[in-house]
Amino acid sequence: MDFKLKIENLEKRFGDKVILSGVDLEVDSGTITAIIGKSGTGKSVLLKLMAGILEKENGKISVEYGSENSAQDQKPKAGNLQEIGLSYMFQNNALFDSLSAFDNIALPLVESNSSISASVINQKVKALLKQLDLETVGASYPGDLSGGMNKRIAFARALITEPKIILFDEPTTGLDPERKHTVFDMIQFYKKQFGFTAFLVSHDIPEVYSIVDSIAWLDEGEIKYFGTVDSIDSISDPAIKHYLKTGRLSV
């Protein structure tokens, strides 16, 4: 079912420090949105608010389905997007060292309260391992595998619950240029296959533009630019245009 994800006037503070001072964003389902910006501008905080890991001070995160406008308002305790199915791929993968790749991927299903049988879980994990070309590493532990392999395991774990939304927090950090492109291609490929909506925090400008539908530039706690890659050319401010095109602040 198609939906619109709406973020309205989202605010977050840590003590006296204002991180987000009113973020507004509206994204269609089935798209990939890159969230870009300088370090420390609150990109990961925005994702964590969406995932319900952090609690917002103010604002609303809601989902509107079709034309009926049946909004599911975010409750004060965030995490409501999880009701429509949300996964989060962490910057450092957040895999459990004590679990094998297979068990890591199966974890969300094994521990979920829905009564999915062990054989169904087994089938689903095996299918996903095959799809992501991880068949040979199912019994291996994250500590024994390469960074790129662990990214794929983390991605498989994010996909196992068939989420409608996946949040990627700097999925290419620490990878060489070739592997970066592999990860981007992987996200694009599986987005087409599984049809999820993706938010992708990245510093890889302009490489990340090759897979995204829209860009959200977060600066000084607000979204300063939201639009497609093509529409960057129509920006009148040369400094902003230069930054969005190259990732560098100086012209």
Binding site: A51, N92, A94, P108, E111, S112
Partner: peptide, 18 residues
């Protein structure tokens, strides 16, 4: 530290109980 507790929460697993 390694955000694994956050990961549990995003997987709808109660980290305290787990």
């Amino acid at each position: 530290n390694y955000e694994q507790i956050d990961a549990l929460e995003t997987m709808n697993i109660d980290s305290k109980g787990f």
